[in-house]
Design a protein around this nucleic acid. Structure first.
Length: 289
DNA sequence: GCGACAG
DNA sequence: ATCTTGTCGC
């Protein structure tokens, strides 16, 4: 591919290229067994294809039947509002990194009390590769959701908060920036649920860096804002950096997962934040073993 | 002095 | 992620 042809307008493209390059390098480890690295490449291709397919079903606008209680209107019926908010996460064993525990909780949106909790131990064979977190973590979480749905549990979540990013994600075809599909999107599409991605660290995308965000949050004109848009150098809005607690320094990175708009996601996250990390995620971490 | 990127 | 140390960030 003719990379060096364009020199002037290469910043955004080059960034994509470098990300891909770093990824390629990371897949070439394990030199002792060359066959393994071939398998890694095959998996890599499969992952990309899978993300491409799932992404076609991604919905980036509000798409749910419930309402937020604040917008109760004339035709309002009890039971139509958002009530069951889920949270999913995985914790790992300290001595054996392949041993993990997936956890699912459901909270009451208004009281923030835990209504449901379940977990499942697994042995993970898939490595963590930046940009492909879903292939490591999603299966267990899917199972927990499935189990709950199959048993017709009345607390089955109407919305899911995911410990990881949604749209705020670098995965893409080379030299384009219109593709992105993080863990929250992945789970949302597969479970057909509205999801919100909750990141505690920034995944560098489209020129966004930690220092960029730090400067934005520290800027005078933003000092009173509770959140700021994460605008990449392409102009795209990837999500927001949010001060979930008054005066908190370390922001939360909110991005939409599936079937929800950024504005709605922000509102919901704010309403569920007693501390820096929103309750569904905080509780799921407390529940995990 | 090094290494950039969710968990 | 997890552990640990220590207290900025380029």
């Amino acid at each position: 591919m003719m990379v060096s042809a364009q020199h002037a307008s290469r910043t955004a493209y080059e960034e994509e290229f470098r990300q891909l390059w770093f990824f390629c390098c990371s897949m070439e480890e394990a030199p002792e067994e060359p066959s393994q690295s071939r398998d890694s490449w095959r998996d890599h291709q499969t992952w990309i294809t899978t993300q491409d397919i799932l992404r076609e079903k991604l919905m980036t606008e509000d798409s749910f039947s419930w309402k937020l209680s604040s917008e109760s209107e004339p035709g309002y019926k009890k039971g139509e509002e958002l009530r069951y908010v889920g949270g999913v996460d995985i914790s790992f064993s300290k001595d054996d990194p392949s041993k993990a525990c997936g956890t699912l909780v459901v909270l009451d949106f208004h009281t923030l009390q835990v209504l449901y909790q379940d977990f499942s131990f697994v042995t993970l064979q898939v490595p963590y590769v930046p940009g492909f977190l879903a292939f490591r973590e999603a299966p267990v979480l899917q199972q927990l959701l499935e189990k709950m749905k199959r048993s017709d549990n009345p607390f089955y979540p109407q919305l899911l908060m995911v410990d990881g990013n949604g749209i705020l994600h670098p995965r893409g075809k080379c030299f384009t920036n219109e593709y992105c599909f993080g863990l929250a999107c992945h789970i949302g599409v597969e479970a057909n649920l509205p999801t919100i991605g909750i990141g505690k660290n920034l995944h560098h995308v489209d020129g966004l860096t930690h220092s960029t965000v730090r400067k934005l949050l520290g800027a005078e004109e933003n000092s009173s804002k509770e959140y700021i848009n994460l605008v990449g150098c392409s102009g795209r809005i990837w999500g927001v950096a949010m001060r979930s607690t008054q005066g908190s320094i370390k922001p939360l990175f909110i991005s939409i997962g599936h079937m929800i708009s950024l504005q709605t996601a922000i509102m919901i996250v704010q309403k569920t934040c007693k501390f820096r990390v929103p309750e569904p995620i905080r509780q799921v971490k407390l529940s995990s073993i």
